[in-house]
Computed example of a mutant assay.
Amino acid sequence: MAAKLGPRLADRPPWTPTPAELWSKVAVGNVDFENDFHADTPGSDLIKKAILDNDTRPLYLEAWGGTNTIARALKSIEDEYNSTSSWSAVQAKVNQKAVIAALGMQDNAYADYIGKSWPKVKLYNMGGGPGCSAVPANAVYCSPEYWTPLKYSHGPLIEARSFFGDGTYHVSEEGITSNGIHNWEPGQAKDMETFRLYNRGDKHQRMEFAGEGDSPTFLFLLNNGLRATQDPSLGSWGGRYKPSDTIPTTYNGQADVNPETGTASSGYASQRWTPEMQNDFAGRIEWGASPAFTDANHNPVVKLANSDLTGKAGKTVEVSAKVTDPDGDNVKLNWSVYTDASTVTSPVAAVQNPTSKTAYVTIPDGAKSAERIVVVLTVTDKGTPALSKYGEVVITVK
């Protein structure tokens, strides 16, 4: 499918991979049994090669079903180098480069081996993820009205995917359980009273929790203008993360305050971005179904004048950006203080001139040295679907 879509994606953003690049990254890992990392596999060899190559950038090792193949790659590195004179250098390289992004500990490989033998390798212990439950106004983005038109008019790949209330029905892989309810039913149930996604015992209908739960590990890395790959506490579509107080190489999800409820949750740290996130997915569907670049909408381009600024307490700081749109669409700008990602303890006044390319942020009189104010510029175009890009500015108090 990627090969078929290749010509249509060739003029999309430069990070769109070619089919050859995708195939070069596909290999079978350790699958003999749960928690298996007893022997090298093509998958573990691929990870090992990537860890040890000369690319000095962080290497994010995503684990959506357990860390056992990652464990095997690290064990192979240890077995090859631990009795050599280069072992210390290899350890330092791995500790600096490898970042495990895991959706929970879905096997025991991290506890049994990685955490003990490689305690300095960073672990992002991720959770939460996309959804529409946190903000009532976002419910449309998880509705049949939103997704069904996309599913049935954009080619066979997306038509084969199950969406919320899309009218499809598939038989469960595991059959009917002892209580008569299917464990997993993608698509719309024929009988809502009998068939549900999970037997949760609550009012939720089937498919009201149908998002892929492991996607925060991938959404975290999307180049949308948020700066989580530089500092995970700055936030991303996959949530916001900080080091554990007891294990500084383990990063855990942080809670953002939901303005609808006044309560904080790590789930809202991802769901606060739901409109932009879901529209972005819809936009990518359009890319694959559009023969020409001009047939689809594309994200605006945001270039900040400065992404890191300083200022003294009581002073006003200017933030600005150059904004363009590749399709020539009109755009809407909004600068806002990201309070949850900020560390100032004094309240920050609303951004002045928030809908213009140049805006102003006043540092509170009570702000202390080294505290920070995080300001997010959200730029959304008037195309269909409306697509967005961010700019994230960190103002550090002098």
Rank of each mutant, 00 (worst) to 15 (best):
T378Q: 14
A359R: 14
R206E: 07
V28G: 06
G6T: 06
P144Y: 15
T380F: 12
D214G: 07
P130Q: 14
V135E: 09
V397A: 04
T378C: 07
L333T: 04
V337I: 02
G201C: 00
Q278M: 15
G391E: 11
D308Q: 11
W147K: 12
E159K: 14
G391N: 09
R72F: 08
I285K: 01
Q278N: 15
V171G: 01
Y146W: 11
G288M: 08
R8Y: 14
A139Y: 08
P130I: 15
T345K: 00
Y338N: 14
H170F: 11
T358D: 02
F37R: 15
T384R: 14
T378R: 06
D325W: 14
I77C: 02
G65F: 08
G201F: 00
I77A: 08
P385G: 13
S86L: 10
L22G: 09
A137F: 14
G127C: 03
P186A: 02
T84V: 14
S117F: 05
V302K: 10
L197V: 10
V351G: 09
N224D: 15
Y198Q: 07
G104M: 13
N297L: 15
Q352G: 06
A269Y: 08
K116M: 12
P58Y: 07
D327H: 06
P42D: 09
V171E: 04
P58S: 06
G167L: 10
G314P: 05
D79P: 13
G66Y: 11
N353K: 03
V376K: 02
N82C: 12
L222I: 12
V344T: 05
V361D: 01
W287Y: 10
A160T: 02
F220S: 04
K93D: 10
N183I: 01
T16Q: 13
A370N: 10
P130T: 15
D191Q: 09
P291D: 10
V337Q: 05
K151F: 14
Y60M: 11
Q230H: 00
E62T: 05
K151P: 14
A321G: 13
D79T: 12
Y152N: 00
S85W: 01
N306A: 10
W335F: 05
T324A: 13
L103Q: 03
S266M: 07
V351K: 03
Y60H: 03
T148P: 01
V394Q: 04
G253F: 01
G238Y: 00
F281W: 10
A349F: 09
A255L: 03
Y124L: 02
L197Q: 02
S88C: 07
G66E: 10
V31S: 12
A134Q: 14
G213P: 01
G288D: 05
R12V: 08
I51D: 04
A305E: 13
I373N: 00
S270R: 13
N258H: 11
D112Y: 03
G175K: 05
A189P: 03
V337M: 03
N258D: 12
N138P: 10
F218Q: 12
V28F: 04
I47M: 07
Q230W: 00
T217D: 09
Q271S: 13
T148K: 14
L46R: 07
D40V: 15
P13S: 10
V257D: 05
T358V: 02
W87E: 10
A109K: 09
Y60I: 13
Q96T: 09
H182R: 01
L304G: 12
K312P: 00
D45A: 02
S133P: 00
V397T: 09
G391K: 13
V397E: 07
G238R: 02
